[in-house]
């Protein structure tokens, strides 16, 4: 019993007695004595209480739902509260904190002899190597190739080697065209001056996200068509279908210029909203304005026995933005 009590008392003394002893005070001041600045103090203290007021206002605004411009008031009260705290801290730092600037010269070298010794040690330690240059070459080779290897995945940014996506589209000979509500498109529904979008039948909504899926449909008067020889027969009685994906950077073409009175007005054109690449639907989608580098791929279409539009094959060229590799491959028919 006595031993336990002794143990407890000694433990208490050890733990509680380990307080830091206050260092003895110097007789001289270390920090220079600067005069007080009651004006700045008042400003700093006032700003702090102002911040408190704004914070309370935030809670009040939050509670009163019916205030107009509620979101703006919430932001204002919170922002001003934080701003007031910041202002108070700035005033304190600039006007109230005692500062002193002292200039001291650089200290001279402490151990000149030992520093020279160290240099000698390093030099003599390298004496053992006989093929220093080869070592340097080896290190350069290892480090350099490692650096390049780490950068190599950047090639995956563009389809340098994987152009499968751009060669394969969901269009095949005989595939019917459907509109955005999955209804098959009749040739008679496509009117002049109208602008329509279509997809291959049987594709889900996710499948429609493929670059090669969407087409734009417009009808031009037959006498206005000027298709080049390799695209003869790609239209269906004046209805032409082009890839919806701009060949510049891959945005969807969503603008159509449909003039009411040809002589005075610009010709019909498919325009991309991103950078205004303009394609002429009458001559195979050639670029008449804008940064696109090649003409719009055209889908050959025809009208089946029941009057619905069907594809007669695949696009005549790569769909999608003009990466370096896509000019080389052609899609399978």
């Amino acid at each position: 019993m006595g031993r336990a009590r002794t143990l407890l008392v000694s433990a208490a003394v050890v733990l509680l007695g380990r307080r830091k002893r206050k260092p003895p005070k110097n007789a001289d001041r270390v920090v220079p004595k600067l005069p007080p600045n009651p004006g700045a103090e008042a400003v700093a203290i006032g700003l702090l209480f102002l911040a408190a007021l704004f914070a309370v206002a935030f809670v009040v605004v939050y509670a009163v739902d019916s205030l107009p411009a509620h979101t703006q008031l919430l932001g204002l009260t919170l922002g001003l509260s934080l701003l007031a705290i910041a202002a108070s801290l700035i005033v304190t730092a600039k006007k109230l904190v005692a500062t002193e600037e002292l200039v001291e010269p650089y200290t001279p070298d402490e151990h000149p002899g030992e520093q020279e010794l160290l240099v000698q040690v390093v030099e003599e330690s390298g004496d053992r190597l006989t093929r220093k240059r080869l070592f340097k070459m080896g290190l350069g080779a290892a480090g350099g190739t490692l650096g390049l290897a780490v950068l190599a995945p950047a090639l995956s940014f563009g389809p340098f080697f994987q152009t499968k996506y751009y060669r394969g589209t969901p269009w095949r000979r005989g595939r019917r065209l459907v509109d955005e509500h999955f209804h098959p498109v009749r040739a008679s529904d496509i009117e002049e001056n109208g602008f329509y979008a279509a997809f291959p039948e049987g594709l889900s909504l996710d499948g429609r996200e493929e670059l090669g899926a969407g087409v734009v449909l417009v009808r031009l008067p037959i006498h206005a068509l000027r298709l080049p020889p390799e695209l003869h027969g790609y239209d269906a009685g004046g209805i032409v279908a082009y890839s919806k994906i701009c060949t510049h950077a891959g945005c969807a073409i969503s603008m159509y210029r449909a003039p009411l009175f040809q002589p005075d007005e610009p010709r019909p054109a498919l325009v991309c909203p991103c950078h205004y690449s303009t394609f002429d639907p009458a001559d195979g989608g050639s670029v008449t304005f804008g940064p696109a580098g090649r003409r719009l791929p055209m889908l050959p279409i025809g009208v089946d026995a029941k009057g619905y539009l069907r594809a007669k094959g695949n696009f005549d060229d790569e769909v999608g933005p003009t990466w370096w590799g896509t000019r080389i491959w052609k899609p399978s028919p």
């Binding site: 529904d189 009117e191 001056n193 109208g194 602008f195 329509y196 159509y256 210029r257 449909a258 003039p259 009411l260 007005e265 610009p266």
Partner: peptide
């Protein structure tokens, strides 16, 4: 002008 027209079918 160059605005496309939308019929009742569209």
């Amino acid at each position: 002008y160059v605005m496309p027209s939308f019929s009742k079918k569209a």
